[in-house]
Every structure is written in structure tokens, then in C-alpha cells.
Amino acid sequence: MMEKYQIIVLAIAIATFTGLNIVYRKSQKQKAQQIPDEQELHRILLEEVLFYQKLDAAEQESFRERIHHFLQLVRITPVRNLKITKTDKVLVAAAGIIPLFRFKNWMYNNLNEVLIYPDRFAADYSLDGDDRNVLGMVGDGAMHRTMILSLPSLRAGFVINSTGNTAIHEFVHLLDKSDGATDGIPEEILQHENVKPWIHLMHEYIREIREREITDINPYGATNEAEFFAVVSEYFFQRPERLQEMHPELYQLLDSAFNRTQ
């Protein structure tokens, strides 16, 4: 009797596992279908992402692999029946890959989902009311491991000659946060010998921006140390030649941080 019971239990377990496995494979297939194929992905990146255009063929292949990996791990979810395209998803992934591209084995371990809003939103994540002035945000509390981006700002950041990129800005915040503190000191990527020079230079720049001695850096960077790091990182990735010309010491420290291979 016991053997018969064990056989029945085993049969039920096998059937359950088989059913779950079918559902899993179907969900994975549906998920994969949301990712552009290799040719389409290459076309989108060539048309939309200047950073990708400047890479050689081998680096472009690596970038595409990182895009696929990102899209398999991170959900990108439109809200309020917003329609987003494959290109929009690729832009989100590209914004995440760009700051980490030279770090071959790195991925965001503090992000599960990116919510795409139809427009600006309030600091409490609301799309209603008159105080909707936020373009992007890394969530906290109940929204931990979640990023929010407005669709217009996501697209605007990849327009040729754009001076800012909200999505890159928010991913830099995640990178900053990965060492346990969002404090503008990216200890995970900044060499130990550069920490003190970075802190000194950062505070000097914040003071000068507040005193309006510097006008080519977004003044939002003077809000605090975390915003300074995110703002100048946008500048570094959007217009590196200009940053090098205008602020060579700042450029050198950022280049040393973001472009060292690990």
C-alpha cells in the first residue's frame, strides 16, 4: 500500500514538474521574443547610440551580448497603457551598459525592473498633480531595486548632440549605490589612489558651480555629491571631447574610473 502511495505521489510530482517546465519554457520564449534579433539590434544601436557607433567590430559584438543579458535579467515595464517599442527597450539597456562596458563581468545587482512613465512625474512617483518635475529616479523603500524613467527623456538622451542623458544619469546613481552609499564616490570603480583627489576636485567643482564660475556643467550637479557624479558622468559619456577640453583634470579622473578594464 505504501509503495502504491509513493508511486502516485511520484507521478503527481513528475506531472507538476513537467507542467511547470512547459510554462517556464513558454515564458522564456515569450520573453526572448521581446528582444530584437542580432541584425535588428545592430541596426537599432547604429542608428540610435553614438557610443556604440564608436566601438570596433569586436567591441560592438560584446556590447550586443551585454544588451541581451541585460534584457533577460531586467524587466522593462510601461505604465498606464503606455506603448513602448523594441528600440525603447534597447535604449534602456544601452544606458545601463555604457557606464559598465569596460568592466566585463559586472552587472547591476541592485535592479530588477525599469518602469517607463509617459511623462514627468512627482517625487512620490505620481503622474498626477502640479509638482511633476522628475525625469528619472532610482526608487527607494517599497520601490527598492526599481528605476523609473520618463519615455520622452529616455529618447531625448540619445538624440545626436544631446548634452544630457537621464537614463545614463540614473544608472550612474545605481553604480554609485553599489558600494553601499550613494555619495558621489564610486569606490567600486575608482582606484584607491584617486579617491582623495576625486573628493577634493568634486567639492571644488560644486563650490564653483554654485558660485556660477562654471557654466558648461549642468547646475543640478551642485545639488550634492551624488548628483555631481551623475551629472559629470552624463557629460563624460555624451560629450567626452568637450569635457576633456574644458575640464582636463576632471576628465582624466572619470576616464581612469570608467575606462579601466576589469
Rank of each mutant, 00 (worst) to 15 (best):
V49L: 06
L115G: 01
V9A: 14
S126G: 01
K196M: 13
Q238I: 09
F103Q: 15
M147R: 09
D124M: 01
T215K: 10
E204G: 13
Q28H: 12
P197Q: 04
H247Y: 05
L253S: 03
E211V: 07
A95R: 02
A11L: 09
Q33C: 10
Q60D: 01
A57W: 06
G141Y: 00
S150Q: 03
E208D: 12
R66Q: 12
F63M: 03
H42A: 15
E40M: 13
R242G: 07
E241G: 05
T215A: 11
T215N: 07
A122K: 02
E193L: 09
E188I: 15
G141V: 00
I217H: 06
A156N: 08
Q244A: 09
E3H: 11
F63N: 00
E48M: 09
Y24H: 12
L250K: 04
H42Y: 11
Y117R: 02
Q53I: 01
E227L: 04
F258E: 06
E211K: 08
R260I: 15
L154F: 12
K29C: 14
V195G: 04
I148N: 11
I148W: 14
W106I: 14
G164I: 14
L73C: 09
P240N: 01
L45D: 02
I214S: 07
V232N: 05
L149Y: 02
I22S: 03
